[in-house]
Design a protein around this nucleic acid. Structure first.
Lengths: 216, 216
DNA sequence: TCTAAACATGAGTTAGAGCTCATGTTAATA
DNA sequence: TATTAACATGAGCTCTAACTCATGTTTAGA
C-alpha cells in the first residue's frame, strides 16, 4: 500500500503503442470540445467516441468510465495552469511594483483562459454531477491560494498567515471568475472587464500593502 | 396570440384546491432540498415525488416536465432576491456614506443567501443541463445590474452609463460569488470572507466615488 | 516466424430517468 | 342530490446513456 489507494480512478490501461496513444488524445480532445459546445449532458461517451472517430469499445479499453475521462482532462489542465502562473506572474526573484504585478497577474490568467477554453468548461459542467471533480477543482484552487499566500507573506512580514490566506482566497476566486465571465462577452466589454479586474485588484491589495513599503 | 408565446413552460394546470396547492408547494420544497443535497443528478422526478410524499402522477398533473419545476423555483427566488435588496440596501431616499452603504449591501446579500440556501443550488446545478435556466439567471443578474447602474448614476453624474454598468457588473458578480462561497466555510473564515468582501468593495468603489463628493 | 500481449470493433445488454394513462376518488356547484 | 371538473394513483412504457464482451486484428519481441 505504498502508493495510490484512494485516488480518483484514472485509466484502465495505459496505451503502449503510438497509435493507441494518439487515439487516447483524440478521445480527450473530443470530450473537451463537446463539453465546451454542449455541456455535460451533450458529452455522452457515445458522442465522445463518435467525435474522436473511435468505436465506443476503444474508449472503454482505456477509461474505466465516463468520469475518468473528465478526471484526466482536469488533471491535465490543472498542472498547465499552475505552470503558467508560476512562469509568468508569481514566483519571480526581483520584486516589482504593485501595479505592475497586478497587470501581469491578471493578464496571465486572462491569457490562460483564452488559450484553454476547455479548462473552465470542465469544471463548470461538473457541478453536482461529479463530486470527485469538484474536489479536484477545490484542490487546484487551494494550491493556487497557497502559492499566493506565500507570495504575500514575502511582501509584508507584518501580515499574519491568516491575512495572507484570506487575501489570496479572495483574489483567486474573484479574478478567476471575472476572467471566466469575460470570455463570453463582446470584445469591448470584455476588455473593460479586464481593466476593471485590474482596478479592483490593485485597490484591494493597496489597502494591505500600502505604498509605504518601498520595494513595492 | 395576445400573451405568453415563447416563455419557458410553467405549469400544466394551476392547483385550485387547498390540498393540491399544498402538494405543489411540497413538490417545490422537495426539489429544492434534493438539489441542495445531491445536485441535479440526484433531483430526479421520481425522487422529488417520493420526497414530497406524492405519487409521480400527481407531480405531472401540475408540471409538464422536470424543467418546469426548476423554472418555477428559480422564479420564486428571483423575485424574492430583488425585493430583499430593494427593501434593504438599494433604492433608499436619503444618501448615506459609502462605507455604510457597502456594509448594508454586503450584509443584505449574505443574509439572503443564508436564509435561502436553495437559491444558489438551483442555478449552480443548472449549468449546461438547462439552457433555459441559465438564461433566467442571466436575466436576474442583468436586472440587479440595472438596478445598481441607476443607483451609481445617481451618485455621480460625471460617470458614463457604461462606467456605471461595468461597476455594477463587477459588484453583482463578485459579491454574489464570495457570499456564495462563504456559505460552505467554517464560521470563523466565513466571517472573515464577509469582511474581506466589504473591504474590497469599498476600496473599489472609492476609486470611482472619491470622498470629494460630500453626500457620500 | 511464431506467440503472446496489446489493441480494435460495434451490436447488444442493462439500468434507470422521464413521463403516460386508464381508472378511481374527491370537491364544487346547479 | 346529481353532474362535472378537478384531483389521485402507480404500474408500466419508452427512450437513451453507460457500459460489456465475444471475436477478430495488429504489434512487439524471442
Amino acid at each position: 500500500m505504498a502508493e495510490s489507494a484512494s485516488q480518483p480512478p484514472k485509466m484502465r490501461r495505459k496505451p503502449r503503442q503510438a497509435r493507441s496513444r494518439e487515439r487516447v488524445n483524440r478521445i480527450l480532445d473530443a470530450a473537451e470540445q463537446l463539453l465546451i459546445e454542449g455541456g455535460y449532458t451533450a458529452a455522452t461517451t457515445n458522442a465522445i467516441a463518435a467525435r474522436a472517430q473511435v468505436p465506443i469499445g476503444t474508449l472503454y479499453q482505456f477509461f474505466p468510465d465516463k468520469a475518468a475521462i473528465l478526471y484526466t482532462l482536469a488533471e491535465r489542465y490543472g498542472e498547465l495552469l499552475r505552470e503558467h502562473l508560476l512562469t509568468s506572474a508569481t514566483g519571480r526573484d526581483l520584486p516589482i511594483s504593485l501595479p505592475d504585478y497586478v497587470e501581469e497577474l491578471v493578464d496571465a490568467i486572462e491569457c490562460f483562459y483564452t488559450e484553454h477554453p476547455g479548462y473552465l468548461a470542465i469544471f463548470a459542467q461538473a457541478q453536482g454531477a461529479l463530486p470527485e471533480l469538484e474536489r479536484m477543482e477545490e484542490a487546484l484552487d487551494t494550491q493556487l491560494i497557497e502559492d499566493w499566500t506565500r507570495e504575500h507573506a514575502r511582501w509584508d512580514a507584518n501580515l499574519t498567515e491568516s491575512d495572507c490566506h484570506a487575501i489570496a482566497f479572495v483574489l483567486v476566486k474573484t479574478i478567476g471568475m471575472l476572467m471566466w465571465l469575460s470570455l463570453e462577452q463582446e470584445t469591448e466589454f470584455r476588455q473593460r472587464l479586464v481593466s476593471e479586474t485590474k482596478r479592483f485588484t490593485l485597490s484591494y491589495l493597496q489597502t494591505y500593502f500600502s505604498r509605504n513599503s518601498e520595494n513595492l
